[in-house]
């Protein structure tokens, strides 16, 4: 009889029983709804052992690669170790250097203390010594020597204030992760990619673009970065340089407050709408605050982008401290 190891407990599985059945029988709390593999409420993650066929049915490639599976669809024949989807590995990281490409943006480079496997486009939960924790996207790609985070200074933001103003090289942060599935996969290397985001929504998009280029993506890649003023295009130089080095990569900045005769003028939403029109069949990556990416993904979907081609990472800001 196979055994399931879950949060340190060893649970024997009965013949033909699913992981969800076994967890519920053992009194473990697991979210679930349809129990037929459609709603994905019962997503959990394998830590060891072989997954049975069908356990990852319908999941995105980035989730499949990382061992996520549906508890209601998994009837293991062999021993399996699994954990809740939000039970993430933890590691320490030391600040190597900090750059300030715009008045309210910090690029923080971290040296991980030990091996850290992640996919470009994912995020980590960053914790300060006193436990204050916020999620930040990774702008780096796995081959880079350092991990890179982009932090926008939020007015009265406790964590972003600390990271942008108090943090110094040599300081240590605790990271928990990686999480998220806003990642490139090379199943359709010729498909055009549209990447759009405002502010530090650029961070994961930068990682995804570099990852796609490194994996030999042949389709056109267009990165749309939106800002309120030209100063907010904080990676302008680096992105122009990336475009010079890669003929398939195009950088399309937009500035809400620019003069009407400036080709960058206008809202990111309008720039994306035009890009969608001239790029049928694209895979679309959208990152930034929910009030930005909500309308963008709706536009993209109603413009005909398939759900499986819509990858979204909404940065939810913590409620202000009282």
């Amino acid at each position: 009889m196979p055994t399931l190891t879950w949060r340190g407990r060893e649970l024997p599985l009965e013949v033909g029983e699913t992981i969800l059945d076994a967890l519920e029988r053992a009194g473990e709390k697991v979210a679930s709804s349809c129990r037929v593999g459609a709603c994905q409420s019962c997503l959990v993650r394998a830590r060891g052992g072989a997954l049975p066929a069908g356990a990852q049915k319908g999941l995105r490639p980035a989730l499949v690669e990382q061992g996520y599976f549906l508890a209601c669809q998994a009837r293991p024949d062999d021993d399996l170790e699994a954990a809740p989807a939000d039970d993430l590995p933890q590691l320490r990281a030391t600040v190597a250097r900090i750059e300030r490409p715009a008045p309210d943006v910090a690029r923080i480079f971290l040296e991980a203390d030990g091996a850290f496997a992640y996919r470009a486009g994912q995020f980590v939960h960053v914790a300060r010594a006193d436990g204050l924790t916020r999620p930040y996207s990774l702008a780096s790609v796995p081959g880079d020597a350092l991990l890179e985070l982009h932090v926008k200074r939020a007015p009265s933001g406790a964590m972003s204030g600390y990271l942008c103003e108090a943090l110094a090289p040599g300081d240590v942060l605790t990271l928990r992760g990686p999480a998220g599935s806003c990642c490139y996969d090379d199943s359709r290397p010729a498909q055009p990619l549209l990447l759009a985001g405002t502010g530090t929504g650029l961070a994961p998009l930068l990682g995804v673009a570099r990852d796609a280029l490194a994996r030999g993506h042949t389709g056109a890649i267009t990165l749309l970065h939106g800002a309120l003023t030209a100063a907010g295009l904080y990676a302008d130089e680096a992105l122009r340089d990336l475009a010079r080095r890669h003929p398939t990569f195009r950088y399309a900045p937009s500035v809400l407050g620019a003069a009407p005769d400036d080709p960058r003028a206008g809202a990111l939403r309008d720039h994306l709408a035009r890009a969608l029109q001239v790029t049928p069949g694209a895979r679309v990556f959208l990152c930034g605050p929910p009030e930005t990416v909500g309308p963008l993904q709706r536009d993209a979907f109603l413009a005909g982008v398939k759900l499986r081609d819509l990858l979204v990472d909404a940065f939810v800001t913590a409620a202000p401290a009282r």
């Binding site: 709804s33 349809c34 037929v36 459609a38 709603c39 994905q40 409420s41 929910p290 990416v293 909500g294 993904q297 709706r298 979907f301 759900l307 819509l310 979204v312 909404a314």
Partner: peptide, 19 residues
């Protein structure tokens, strides 16, 4: 039907349509 997480919303609809 307007949700920030459209994938989660679509998964619910898939469950509904399957039913």
């Amino acid at each position: 039907f307007d949700a920030v997480d459209m994938q989660a919303q679509a998964a619910k609809q898939k469950a509904f349509l399957t039913m």
